[in-house]
Write a protein that binds this DNA or RNA. Structure first.
Lengths: 186, 186
DNA sequence: GTCTATAGTGGGATAGAC
DNA sequence: GTCTATCCCACTATAGAC
């Protein structure tokens, strides 16, 4: 791991705990074992750290979704793949996920625009899968927005409790999550 | 509305947009139409605003949950009532809800302890309802934590999209939400 | 009850020695 | 590549005039 990666890594943990704005570069420096001034040999600004965390992850979601969208499987199977995509990313990158969820509004102008666009595209792709599923009778004809956001809300905040209650095997989690989100609890 | 309520109200909107730490008392003062120093005739500190927002709302959830818990209805009907409780609060207090979700960690020591306790109690009550439902065969025998947090995640972040996509009648939303969360989408 | 002025602290970031 | 020292600015909060 390069020094820069170490810094980004340490920062992501702090951002998850207190949020981007409440973390100082002095905090990040201390967590990395150096003085604040030394950070600037590796990063251009505090905001650059945030951009790296959020945009790298957003790109992962974007390419993951593109793969799913283009596969020749049914809408329901695509939704299963989306659920698995979120769970895999949550397990491996819960800190960056926290920044993406909570601190995206503190990105600089250009990165903010990119992020918002990517998020809209992602939701559009997901919405189209759901609508297709409803159209061919594979999904109940409920308001698509309610379906979209009830699934997305759960997946997006999974990082908040996956570790705490943890000890859930990833494959068990995927199986139960698919069951609960698709087939309900009744 | 008293001047203090106006201040708390203005602050809650700003907190929702940028988070507690990124909002200055000057921002709050400007939104209320006064100078920063004048705020302190009405509030003791910026943190007091956060405490009011979060603890008042936490108390609403706590008493709402206590009422549901003590009613003589089935576990499934209780879950429906919990869903309706969240939707009602979301519709009326989405700004405070944002603070409760994202900025609770910036509460002072004592308020933080109260809040964490209330949240644990709330989740415990909900968990017990789910376990009871599974026990009597009214709810599928899935991992209770997965059920608990998939429902709670959706309800807790409802405030993020209720307005945006809005124009959903509250009663339609309740009906569809109950259907999606309880009976799934398949 | 609101204002101006300001205290006191900590923020992000840079300069320059080593 | 890391450090000490420091700049400049914004922050929360207070003092005291009106």
């Amino acid at each position: 791991m390069t020094r820069k990666e170490e810094i980004v890594n340490a920062a992501s943990q702090l951002f998850k705990e207190k949020g981007y704005s409440a973390v100082s570069v002095r905090d990040i420096a201390q967590a990395t074992g150096m003085k604040a001034a030394s950070l600037y040999n590796h990063i251009a600004s505090k905001q650059e750290i945030l951009s790296i965390l959020i945009l790298d992850l957003a790109n992962e979601f974007t390419s993951g979704m593109a793969n799913i969208r283009d596969r020749e499987i049914s809408p329901l199977q695509k939704i299963e793949k989306v659920i698995e995509l979120h769970i895999d990313i949550t397990v491996n990158q819960s800190e960056a996920l926290a920044a993406l969820n909570n601190d995206w509004m503190h990105l600089g102008e250009d990165d903010l625009a990119s992020f918002v666009q990517m998020r809209e595209d992602y939701e559009d792709n997901f919405r189209n899968i759901i609508k297709k599923g409803i159209k061919i009778g594979q999904i109940q004809p409920r308001h698509p927005e309610v379906i979209l956001f009830s699934i997305l809300s759960t997946l997006r905040t999974l990082y908040l409790w996956y570790q705490k209650r943890g000890k859930l095997d990833v494959n068990v989690l995927k199986k139960d999550m698919v069951a609960v989100l698709l087939r309900g609890i009744v």
